[in-house]
Design a protein around this nucleic acid. Structure first.
Lengths: 144, 144
DNA sequence: ATCTTTGCAAATGCTTTGCACATTC
DNA sequence: GAATGTGCAAAGCATTTGCAAAGAT
């Protein structure tokens, strides 16, 4: 068990959950697919390769759990299913996504740069921002 | 028929669609609920008051059509259904939304202020932004 | 022993579709 | 009268749930 898995296991334990073989297999798929945004069914199909008797409902339940614990970020790219990615423990806010309107490719942006906007939102609306989800739609470098 | 409805009718006509009584009733509900974010079923229930024999499928089909024409903006607030609002013809980008994590209230922000971020995205990624969807999660003024 | 987790199948709930009829140009 | 739009009921499909069995502490 590597460092990352030890960290995840302790998050589960702190919250009263166990690192079962099913959950571990699911986490391993997620760790090995960093940068992708997999749907629950895609994850299930991967997990099954290592763990053939697992049930789809278990993977669904695992996704819900991991999202509640902040281990996963849940995305909606409007294709009829939710997609997930591991959250980065050192990022305090979710990163932004670029979605190409032609080819559908999803890529990521590290820059945050919403500080000044969030300050204005606090001053004008009295709203304290905890997190944000930002998607940019447009044309990627290959599709212009 | 007021100015707004005339504009909407001409958008439909330009694209080869008719302003049927069902579509008009649906648009009227949307015009009269500006600032809200209604689900298709909620809209259907309103439309039925004026137009009792309308079918739910017709409203669903109307939402798809109006979104394709850019008349409606489709939102996902993670409550299991899509919600819609009229797009403002003078806004070139969708406005941002503030979502309270406690009470669920959704409010709107006029400020855009993503110009510099979009410039960086163009320079670094060669990605040409056409539109964006920005949601801020946090605590509204009443829930702090 | 008790509490948690799983697998299976069935249920749920939003949305879409097939089709016959109505309406519009 | 050809194309477009509608209403209804049925189908689709991602996700959730009930429940009995299995596993962990």
């Amino acid at each position: 068990m590597n460092d990352g898995m030890i960290r995840l296991k302790s998050i589960l334990k702190e919250n009263g959950y166990k690192l079962t073989p099913q959950r571990r297999a699911t986490l391993e798929v997620l760790v090995n697919s960093q940068g992708e945004h997999m749907s629950t069914e895609e994850i299930y199909n991967e997990v099954r390769k290592a763990h053939p008797q697992i049930g789809l409902a278990t993977v669904y339940r695992t996704m819900i759990l991991l999202e509640e614990l902040g281990i996963l970020i849940k995305h909606n790219f409007e294709d009829g299913r939710y997609r997930y990615e591991l959250s980065h423990p050192d990022e305090d806010h979710d990163h932004h996504h670029l979605i190409c309107l032609k080819c559908g490719q999803v890529s990521e942006v590290e820059e945050d740069l919403l500080g000044s906007l969030e300050e204005i939102i606090d001053k004008k609306h009295g709203f304290k921002v905890v997190n944000h989800k930002v998607k940019f739609y447009g044309h990627c470098i290959n599709c212009q």
